[in-house]
Simulated assay, not measured.
Amino acid sequence: MPSSPSGSSAVASAAPSLRISRFATWRAGIPARMNGWGALRRPALLAVAVGVVGCACAIYLSWRSTGRLATVPWMPEAVGRWADEHGRFRNLPAYFLLSCPFLLAAPRLGIRAWSALALAVFGAVLELAEYFVPVRMVEWQDIAWSWAGVAAAWGAIEAGGWIRTRRRARKMNTLSLLSDPDRKPLVAARSV
């Protein structure tokens, strides 16, 4: 019976490469269980968990019978007093902080855009749901400030990513100049 390429010899030849890969990661000081998706997803999952807790707090605060945050037992007194003094504007920092974990967990621009849109819709739905709370009322300014907070967080995350990319490019440019003086720089030098 002739041996096929998909026989046991092909499986045996694949096994050493797996051992070499594990050995290479062990030698680099990275445990094998930390390689791949598990290691990359843990911070993102933690960020999303923090964001979900923030969404739960937002739902609780929006559907209370009073809009006064100084009466919330678990909120620091200074934060509650500041929020009550600043009225509608308090939605800007609140939605900025609420958006950051979700936007930081998103790996690509498209996912961050959809996350920002979902958070803007979430803020609008929460405000519109106040129509059904007896003492509360819907105000378009609250929706506008919540959208501004989401937009500010998205802009800050994108600006931070752009700055980080520029710094990495400059660092690589410096390293390439040190290793090969005849190589053209990756980033054009500024003229003074």
Rank of each mutant, 00 (worst) to 15 (best):
R164I: 05
P185W: 07
F23I: 03
S9C: 07
M34E: 15
R68C: 10
W37S: 13
F89T: 08
E85Y: 01
R41T: 14
R88A: 15
N173G: 09
G123H: 01
F96L: 08
M34Y: 13
R168I: 08
L69Q: 11
V125T: 05
V121N: 06
S3Q: 15
R81K: 05
S3E: 15
D84V: 03
N35V: 15
S99F: 02
A15D: 08
W145I: 06
M137S: 13
F96D: 00
A116V: 01
G160F: 05
S99V: 03
A78I: 11
R19F: 07
R136T: 08
C100G: 07
T174H: 02
A78S: 12
N173A: 13
V192C: 10
R136V: 14
P2K: 07
G161F: 06
R19D: 13
W114F: 04
Q141C: 06
S4I: 12
S115I: 01
N91D: 10
A169S: 12
A24M: 09
R170V: 04
G87D: 09
A83I: 02
F89I: 13
W147R: 00
L128R: 05
A151T: 00
A116T: 04
L175D: 12
W26H: 14
V133D: 10
S191K: 03
L109Y: 11
I163D: 09
M1D: 13
D182F: 09
G87I: 06
R112M: 02
V121G: 04
A152R: 01
S65A: 14
W26E: 09
L104V: 15
M1A: 12
A159Y: 07
S146I: 00
L61A: 15
A58M: 10
V50F: 15
A116D: 06
A28Q: 10
E130A: 13
R68P: 09
N35L: 13
L61K: 00
R170T: 00
C100H: 00
I59G: 12
A113P: 09
A58Q: 04
